[in-house]
Structure formats: C-alpha cells, structure tokens
C-alpha cells in the first residue's frame, strides 16, 4: 500500500497540520511516511500545500507531480492541482469559495462542506479535522486508534484536552463527505 496525497489551501486553514496529524498517525501505525511542505515567504493568507506519503515500503521521492488523492481547499489550489490527480484517483474539495468546479471526467470527485459545517458548529479551529475525516472515510489507510495517537504526538501536551473535539470533528467529516462523481 502506498498513498500519495497533496493537501492544498490557504495558509491558516490548517493544511500543514492536517498533513502532520495524518503523517504522525501513519508513524504510530508503523508505516513509512514523508511530509514535505511547500515553504515560502508567505504565511497566513498565502497558499500552502503539503505532500504526504504513507506506505508499507521505503518511500522513494518525497516530491511528486502526480497524486492518488488531492485535498483542495481554495480556488488557486484547484487551478494548480486538479490536473495532478492520477487517472482513477480521488479529488476531495470544499466548495466554499470555489468558483470553478473540477471538470475532469477520469477521476473520482467528492465534496465536503467543512467550512460551512465548522462555522455552524462554532468549531472553526477543527475545520481541517472535518476534512481529514472525509478523507479517512474514503481511504481508511490509518485506523482511528492510531489517529488518536497521531493527535497526541503532534499536538503539544497543553492542547491534549482538545483531542476529543478533534476526534469528534473527524467523525463529523466522515458523515459529511458527498460523492459528486465516481468512476464505475
């Protein structure tokens, strides 16, 4: 099993930390992982993306140009990464703020209205965990037991009280994800 994922959106949306939690969950489940951020002079408000690879085997390149799954959280990232999903791969996006929806016919497309839901529930800080939940529903590559351990590992101890809230958000995400287009 090798899952190559790109997560892309605005800085401040929790793109890098979502990737980090996923990567740590993989480590806890004894998988090989890599987490490669785009880093740049931009911080909050700029674009941010991270490549996460989780595999049973030694990982070759941490930098890729084709992905099994793209998780897209803003329009710029849609423009940049829609074309990078492998044929037959998965594109998950939050339609909030998206003006041009994905057009490809050779990939599976899912939407998750995570921003809206997070706003509704007053859980804007765990927006990214709602999205992660949607991804894990489609691709349960790490089990919730290890996601819990991944959260423990990647959050500083003083924030461990927030773990149940994060896990709740993941469960909400699993319910929230909707199919837009599937092949076969």
């Amino acid at each position: 099993m090798t899952e190559e994922i790109i997560i892309a959106g605005f800085g401040g949306q929790g793109v890098l930390s979502m990737g980090k939690i996923l990567a740590y969950s993989g480590v806890m489940q004894d998988k090989e992982v890599s987490w490669m951020p785009s880093y740049g002079p931009e911080m909050r408000g700029g674009t941010a993306n991270v490549t996460v690879i989780i595999s049973d085997e030694r990982i070759s390149s941490p930098i890729l140009n084709a992905y099994d799954t793209a998780i897209i959280l803003n329009q710029q990232s849609m423009d940049k990464f829609e074309s990078t999903v492998k044929p037959g791969g998965v594109l998950i996006y939050d339609p909030n703020g998206i003006t041009r929806h994905p057009e490809r016919k050779d990939i599976n497309i899912y939407t998750i209205e995570a921003a809206e839901k997070a706003g509704e529930l007053g859980l804007s800080k765990v927006f990214n965990m709602i999205v992660l939940g949607g991804f894990l529903k489609l691709k349960p590559i790490v089990s919730m037991e290890y996601v819990h351990k991944g959260l423990e590992k990647s959050l500083p101890a003083r924030h461990h009280v927030l773990i149940p809230e994060n896990e709740k958000a993941i469960e909400i995400g699993k319910e929230l994800i909707k199919t837009t287009q599937t092949l076969n």
Partner: peptide, 10 residues
C-alpha cells in the same frame, strides 16, 4: 538542502 531540512520522515 532546503527540502531535506524541511521535510518530516520517520
């Protein structure tokens, strides 16, 4: 290089 410095692995 910047990539190896910034990336996370086991």
């Amino acid at each position: 290089d910047g990539a190896i410095g910034q990336m996370m692995e086991k």
